[in-house]
Every structure is written in C-alpha cells, then in structure tokens.
Amino acid sequence: MKKNILVAFVFLLLVSCSKTKEPIVSFYYWKTIFKLSHTEKEVLKDNNVTKLYIRYFDIGLHPKTEEPIPISPIHFQENMKDFEIVPVIFIKNKVMLQANLDIKDLAQKTIRLVEEINTKNKIVSTEIQIDCDWTLASKGNYLKFIEQFKKLSHKKLSATIRLHQVKYFKKTKIPNVDSGVLMYYNMGSIAPDSLNSIYSQKIAYNYLKSLKKYPLHLDVALPIYSWGIHIRNQKVIALRSKLNVEELKKDKNFKQISSVFFKAGQSNYKNGVFYEENDLLKIEAISSEDLKEMAQDLDENLAQTPNEIIFYDLDEFNIKYHEKNIFKQVVSYF
C-alpha cells in the first residue's frame, strides 16, 4: 500500500513539474533596418527576452531571368550582443515551384549570405529558420532544399508550419528540421467581407484537433499586428499597414459605419495614399482577448508544451495596442 502511494506521489510530482516550465517569450523582427525604439527595448526587458527571430532577407525571382535572388537584406544599426539571434529567411513559394531549380546552389548562396551578414555584424547564430508556405506542387523542391540546407549549414534548423500543413501532413510531408513554428494567424482570405483574415476561432477549430497527431515538435507564433484592407467597388485594392484607428475616427474625411469599416466621405489623401469617395477601409486587428483565446485553445490541443511563444512582430506600433503584461499573460496559459 505504501509503495502504491509513493508511486502515485512521484507520478503527480512529475506531472506538476512538467507544467511549471512556461514557454519563453520571443519576438519576430520584420523590418529591413534593425534599430530598437525605447518602447521596444522596454518590452524586451520587461519580458526577459533573450532570443529574437530576425528576418535577414527574402528570396524571390528576378523579374527578367527568373533566377532566385535575395530581396531587401537586413541592415543592423545596433549591437546584438545581448540577444541570441535566429536568422529567418522568407522564401517565396514561386521560387520552389521552378522546375529547373538548382537546389544545392540556392542552399549554398543562402548560407553564404547569412554568414556574410553575421560576420559583418559580429553575430554568432546557432540556428537558422526557413519560412516558406510550400504547397503540394512545390513540396518536392522544398523538402530537398531543407535537406541540402541542413547538410551544408551544420546548424540547428527550424521551419515555419502553417495549419493546413499540419492537418494534411501525410500529403504535404514534414520537413527534416529540428523543430517547427506553428504560424497561428493569416487564417482566412483577404476579402471585402466583415470576417477577420488574421484570426478566426471558427476557422482554427477546423485544424486544432490535428495538432496532437503532428509528429514534429512545435513552438507557436502569435499575431500582434493589425492592418487595413483598402476596398473599392467591393474589390480589395491593397493592404494598408500601421493605420491608427483612433486617428481614423477623428479624420473628417472618413466615417465609421460599423465596428470594422470606415468609409471615405470624399476623395482624399491619407499617409500618401489616395482614397476615392466611398472607398472602404476594413480594419483587421488582434485584441488581447484574442491572444488569450488562442493560447487556451492551443494549450488544450498541442501534443507538447511549446518551448517558445514567438510574437509577430516586434514593432512599437503593434505593442502600444496591447496591455503591458499581455505577453506574460499569454504564456501563462501553457
């Protein structure tokens, strides 16, 4: 009897210990110039952030030759000695769709440019992350690229994973990486309707149950950004980033006609953008309550507790719309 009680006690102790280790807070940094504002530095300090995922460059296709080329490499204007830096390379899916893609050459050139940026800025990185929304048509090239990249880089390799790649992983396959980051946003279509394309719990429910079956360890990326969708004659024209909703409410050229829609009462320019009379701006944003809801749903459905919650993205504009301790609140759900 005493032996059974001891076993039960040890089991409960192990279970409780496994739940005490919360994920760490990390951030993506997605600008072309790395320079932190006072507010951004405060957020990093308040949340004990030691790790940043920094977009180093995109890879797209040359408009004439259709050869893969780096786009807008990062420029550092600050010393990075206080942080562990993970270079993130965003590869456009159309690159991986190229039938004659020289995969080894692309991997070599990508690694070389990462090393050049690191050397120039005295950065030592032990991990690199590849961000690509690969599809069934591009998975062959993508999976081969990951294999080559891992072989040549000799570093820990992580990859971004979308919800559809989790649910249909037997078809889309799993890249040979050390870990994945579940991108828990951009769930719907950018459209002139009233739905939020950044996050929808209803859409997420179609994928959540698949998470327990996914065999790769997943950390989680959550959104803290917002944007405006510029609509004319029921057609989406463009995304408008960093729209201050409070300013928009005070702007006499616009009238708020619903919780998410603003209508241009007359033709005008705002932030260098021309709006015709009757154009609409649909505001899509993520609230603190949305973030808590996401965390709770994920905690109930992930196969393992994530090591990190990575917020997208570190920007003073995004931060000011959330309460100060929101990041700690979110990780406490896991």
Rank of each mutant, 00 (worst) to 15 (best):
L106Q: 01
K202H: 10
Y205T: 14
H38K: 15
N318I: 07
D290A: 01
L101Y: 01
N271Y: 13
V331P: 12
I54T: 02
K173R: 11
V331F: 09
F57W: 05
I174T: 10
V95A: 07
R240Y: 10
T119C: 04
V331L: 04
K292R: 09
K122Y: 14
A303C: 05
E247F: 08
V177H: 11
Q304G: 00
H322F: 06
I130T: 09
L195E: 11
I174L: 06
I203A: 06
S288R: 02
N196T: 09
P73L: 06
L314Q: 01
S258P: 08
K270P: 03
L14P: 08
K263H: 02
N307L: 04
E247D: 13
E115G: 02
I326V: 14
Q234D: 15
L218E: 07
L218D: 06
E66I: 08
I237G: 01
L44D: 10
A107L: 05
T110K: 08
K170T: 14
F145R: 03
D315W: 05
L97S: 12
N4T: 08
T135Y: 00
F327A: 02
D193M: 02
I85T: 08
S210M: 01
R112F: 13
V88M: 04
E127S: 04
Y199L: 08
L152D: 09
Y312F: 15
M1N: 12
F9H: 04
D219F: 09
L218M: 03
D178P: 13
P215D: 00
C132D: 05
N325I: 02
N233T: 07
E22Q: 11
E293A: 05
Y275Q: 05
Y333I: 07
L291M: 09
L136G: 01
Q165S: 14
K122G: 00
N176Y: 11
I71V: 15
I310Y: 06
K151T: 09
H62W: 00
I85V: 13
E308N: 13
K122R: 15
V177W: 07
Y199I: 08
G272P: 12
A295C: 13
N176Q: 12
L291V: 11
F261K: 07
L113Y: 09
I229E: 12
